[in-house]
Amino acid sequence: MTRYIIIKLARSAFTLWFVVSAVFLVLRASGDPLYSIFSLGTPESTLDIYREKWGIDKSIFEQYIIYFQDIFRGDFGTSFFDARPAWDLIVERLPNTLLLGGTTFVISVVAGVSLGAIAALMRGSKWDRGIMTVAVASFSMPSYFLGLLLILFFSLEMRWLPTAGAGTWQHLILPATTLGLTLSGTIARFTRSAMLEVLRQPYMRTARAKGASKWRQIVWHALPNAAIPTVTVIGFQLGWLIGGSVVIETVFSWPGAGRLFIVAVGVRDFAVVQMFILMVASTVIIANLLVDILYGYLDPRITITGIKK
């Protein structure tokens, strides 16, 4: 078991290193950022001062080494624009991002799993068809467009909810709904197919033959089995959620890290972009590890193969 975990950890570390290096290379190889930061006529001598200050006068290889040394010292670079540490800029916006992402995630998982299970249990009924139609529609909908429609109706037309910004729970409703609709649609679809798969397994008939009530069959026999594939899918959706929230934060001017990223990308702010990507990748990788562990916990068959490996 420890061996299994160590291999997993090593692979994750490698993945993270690869992502960070690849992004570093792509960004640095893309040309001198100073030309997009300073206006056209700025004398080269001034630019050189900044090049030296930001360490981009050195070769890419040297920069790369320094970058990694700095990371291990806890220094994630300085924003070209704010002249503040990238770490501070991102971390101060994290609570907002976590608030939006966390709310969306919890609601979507609860809604998606229950709707998917209901659809599976009432397979072929009006409810099933209704839920699945909404699910397919929800992930065919461009999320930013859905956001705009919601703003158009609830904020501009009905004047019920604020169009943008953060602060109160009213601010949270529209962005969370926008993000959550797509996510719960995806989760509902997967839950439904996992559930249908489980419901036709012979052990469900055994549960019925034992005299377990309908409710008991679902909660104690079907759901724990359906949870196994569903958890994996939900884990993978975390990456999607982060990507989606970058867009939605922009649409709703939500003062989170995602919006900061879009702004930073627009002005080619190395340090902020790098740090954001490092953070997102670590989050996703850790989430996948947790899913793996949870998976082994949910499925007794997995732990054994893990030990044997």
């Binding site: 397994q201 012979p202 052990y203 008939r205 055994t206 549960a207 033959a209 034992k210 949910l298």
Partner: peptide, 16 residues
């Protein structure tokens, strides 16, 4: 009335 099913390997719930 109780029943023992034909294929015991798949008639038992794998996660219990």
């Amino acid at each position: 009335i109780a029943m023992v099913f034909q294929d015991p390997m798949v008639s038992l719930n794998p996660v219990r």
